[in-house]
């Protein structure tokens, strides 16, 4: 039961974008990216700028 709740929680975090920064840090390490790791706030701002610069919501 606890495992199922944890799974749902992980899924909801992923779906809502709650864990985006954690994923970014993980990706950053994996890609051995040359860019400097962004702070949480910088990353949040960058995510929003990227998300809302195009058509992201429909009719």
């Amino acid at each position: 039961m606890l495992k199922a709740i944890k799974l749902i929680y992980v899924f909801l975090r992923r779906l809502s974008g709650d864990d985006l920064y954690d994923l970014y840090v993980m990706n950053h390490k994996q890609c051995s990216n040359k860019h400097k790791l962004m702070s949480k706030q910088q990353f949040y701002q960058a995510t929003l700028d990227k998300k809302w610069s195009g058509i992201k919501r429909c009719c």
Binding site: F11, L15, N27, C31, H35, A46, K50, K56, C58, C59
Partner: peptide, 27 residues
């Protein structure tokens, strides 16, 4: 083209959720 910005391999259910949330408006 994986990077930490635009191209991010994502779980199919998450992509489904994002795609559905984006297409389903008040129409």
């Amino acid at each position: 083209l994986q990077n930490d910005k635009d191209f991010i391999p994502t779980d199919k259910w998450i992509v489904f959720g994002h795609h559905f949330a984006a297409i389903a408006g008040p129409g």
